[in-house]
Amino acid sequence: NLYFQGLKYMVPGARVTRGLDWKWRDQDGSPQGEGTVTGELHNGWIDVTWDAGGSNSYRMGAEGKFDLKLAP
């Protein structure tokens, strides 16, 4: 699974964008943008601060869902 392989790169400072299971509307800005991981992966959740200004926790394994992917 590509998403599980990418988890080791989901570290503080990593750049991310919305992924396969995104369901959080425009939390990442409008139009959709990139963000920066600000915390360690914990119980399948990870913290992100978006360039647009907001921050929140997103699923990276929790509930079998992956809200994020590494930015290109």
Rank of each mutant, 00 (worst) to 15 (best):
N1I: 12
N1C: 15
N1G: 11
N1P: 13
N1R: 08
N1W: 09
L2I: 15
Y3F: 14
Y3W: 14
Y3I: 14
Y3C: 15
Y3A: 14
F4M: 12
F4P: 15
Q5C: 15
Q5I: 11
Q5S: 12
Q5W: 14
G6N: 13
G6M: 15
L7F: 09
L7E: 08
L7P: 07
L7G: 08
K8D: 12
K8T: 09
K8G: 10
Y9W: 12
Y9G: 09
Y9H: 11
Y9N: 08
M10V: 09
M10T: 03
M10R: 05
M10D: 01
M10P: 03
M10I: 10
V11L: 09
V11T: 11
V11G: 08
P12W: 09
P12E: 10
P12H: 09
P12A: 11
G13F: 06
G13W: 05
G13A: 03
G13V: 03
G13I: 03
A14Q: 09
A14C: 14
A14D: 07
A14S: 09
A14W: 03
R15P: 01
R15W: 05
T17Q: 12
T17P: 02
T17W: 06
T17Y: 06
R18Y: 06
R18K: 05
G19S: 06
G19R: 07
G19E: 03
G19P: 03
G19W: 06
G19L: 06
L20A: 13
L20R: 14
L20E: 11
L20G: 10
L20S: 11
D21M: 04
D21R: 05
D21I: 04
D21Q: 04
D21H: 11
W22D: 04
W22Q: 03
W22A: 04
W22Y: 06
W22R: 03
K23G: 07
K23Y: 06
K23V: 12
W24V: 05
W24H: 06
W24K: 04
W24M: 05
R25K: 14
D26M: 08
D26Y: 07
D26T: 08
D26N: 11
D26R: 06
D26L: 07
Q27L: 06
Q27W: 06
Q27S: 07
Q27H: 06
Q27P: 05
D28W: 05
D28E: 06
D28M: 04
D28H: 04
D28Y: 04
D28G: 06
D28Q: 05
G29V: 06
G29T: 05
G29L: 05
S30Q: 13
S30K: 13
S30F: 11
P31R: 07
P31E: 09
P31N: 09
P31L: 08
Q32L: 10
Q32M: 13
G33A: 08
G33R: 08
E34T: 13
E34L: 15
E34I: 14
E34N: 11
E34W: 14
E34V: 14
G35M: 03
G35V: 02
G35I: 02
G35L: 02
T36E: 06
T36G: 01
T36K: 05
T36Q: 07
T36F: 05
V37Q: 02
V37S: 01
V37K: 00
V37Y: 01
T38Y: 06
T38S: 10
T38C: 13
T38D: 07
T38I: 12
T38N: 08
T38R: 08
G39H: 08
E40K: 13
E40Y: 14
E40P: 13
E40F: 14
E40T: 13
L41W: 12
L41F: 09
H42M: 11
H42I: 13
H42Y: 13
H42L: 12
H42W: 10
N43E: 10
N43P: 03
G44R: 00
G44D: 01
W45H: 02
W45D: 00
I46V: 11
I46F: 01
D47K: 15
D47P: 13
D47H: 15
D47W: 14
D47S: 14
V48M: 00
V48R: 00
V48Q: 00
T49E: 12
T49M: 12
W50G: 00
W50F: 02
W50I: 00
D51W: 01
D51H: 04
D51I: 03
A52N: 11
A52W: 13
A52Q: 10
A52E: 08
A52R: 10
A52I: 07
G53Q: 02
G53A: 04
G53I: 01
G53D: 02
G53H: 03
G54H: 11
G54A: 08
G54K: 08
S55T: 14
S55W: 12
S55K: 11
S55N: 11
S55V: 11
S55C: 15
S55Q: 12
N56A: 11
N56V: 04
N56F: 14
S57K: 14
Y58H: 02
Y58K: 01
Y58D: 00
R59G: 02
R59I: 02
R59A: 00
R59P: 00
R59K: 01
M60L: 07
G61M: 00
G61R: 03
G61W: 04
G61E: 01
G61N: 02
G61I: 02
A62F: 14
A62Q: 04
A62L: 04
E63S: 09
E63I: 05
E63K: 09
E63Y: 12
E63G: 12
G64S: 08
G64W: 08
G64M: 09
G64Y: 07
G64E: 06
G64K: 06
G64F: 07
K65F: 08
K65A: 13
K65C: 15
K65D: 02
F66S: 03
F66Q: 04
F66I: 05
D67F: 04
D67P: 01
D67Q: 03
D67E: 09
D67W: 02
D67K: 02
D67T: 03
L68F: 02
L68M: 00
L68R: 00
K69F: 12
K69V: 12
K69A: 14
K69C: 15
K69G: 07
K69L: 13
K69T: 11
L70G: 04
L70I: 10
A71K: 09
A71Y: 07
A71G: 07
P72I: 13
P72F: 13
P72A: 12
